[in-house]
Amino acid sequence: MFDIVSFIPRAVAQGIPLLFGSTGEIITEKSGNLNLGIPGVMYVGGICGVIGSFLYERSLGNPNLINPVLGILIPLVSCLVGSLIMGLLYCFLTVTLRANQNVTGLAMTTFGVGFGNFFGGSLIKLTGAEVPSIALSATSKLFRTTLPFAHTTGPVGGIFFSYGFLAYVAIILAFVASFVLKRTRTGLHLRAVGEDPAAADAVGIDITRYKYLATCLGCMVAGLGGLYYVMDYANGVWSNDAFGDRGWLAIALVIFTIWRPNISVFASILFGGLYILYLFIPTGENLAVKEIYKMLPYVVTIIVLVFSSLRNKRENQPPESLGLPYFREDR
C-alpha cells in the first residue's frame, strides 16, 4: 500500500532545496545571465552555514546552551554572505569583464564543490570524529522546529505543517518572485534586460545594475537551498558530496517550469517525489529495479528538455539574450 501521508512530506523536503535553487536561477536568468554556477553556489551556501554554526556551537562549549535567535541568524547570515560573494564574483567576471558565462559558471560549480569539500574536510578534522561528517544537532533542531500543532492534527498537519521555517520561506519566495516578475515595473524592466539589453538600455534601464542585483539575489536564494539541505533535510549532518547533483536538477527545473517560479513550487515537489519514489514502491529484493527508479528525475528531465525544445510559443522560450554579454558601444 502506497503511504501517501508519509510520502508527501518527504517529497516536499526533497523538493525544497530544488525550489530554492530554481527560484534563484530563474531570477538570474531573467536578467540574461545563465549562471551554471548554481550547484556550486548551493554548496557554498551550505558549507558557509555549517562553518558559521560550527564555530558558534564550539564557542558555547555545551551545544544545549544555544541561543535560538543567534543559532538561526548566524548560519543564515553566513550562508547569505557566502552565496552573495559567489554571485558578486560571477557578475564581476561576466558582466564587468564580459567573460563567457558558460565557462565562468562551470568553473564556479567546480570551485564551489571543492570549496565545500575542503572546508567540510577541515571541520571534520577539527572535530576529530571517527565518522567523516559533522553533526550540528542543536542548530538543526532550531531549523527543524515546526508549528506546535503539526503533530496533533493528523494527516493534514503532516502534509502541510510538518516543515521547518525555511520550507515556507522557499514557497513564499517563489510566489513573490513570480508576482514581481509578472506584475511590477521592476519585473518588467528585469525581463526586458534579459530579452534585449540593447532595447532596455535605449529606454534608460541600467543594465549593469539589474544584472548584478538579479544575479546576486538569485545566488543568495539558491544558497539557502544548500543551507536547508544541511540544517533541515540532513538533520545538521554535513558530509562531503552528500548534496549530490541537486544543483543540476534545480537548473533542469528552470527549463521544466518555463521560467516561472510559481510553477516551480509544484514542479520541485514533483521532482522531490520522483527522487525518493524508489523508497515507497515495493521493489522486492532486486536492487537493479531500485536503481532504475532512482533514475526517474533524470529521465523526466530529459523528456522535459525534449518537449520544451519542441514548444514553439514565444513566451515559453528562454530569455532571448540569455548567455550573451552586453556592451553598449559594441559595433
Partner: peptide, 10 residues
Amino acid sequence: HQHFKLINVF
C-alpha cells in the same frame, strides 16, 4: 534605431 529596440515578447 534602424534595428528596432523593442522587446519581442512584450
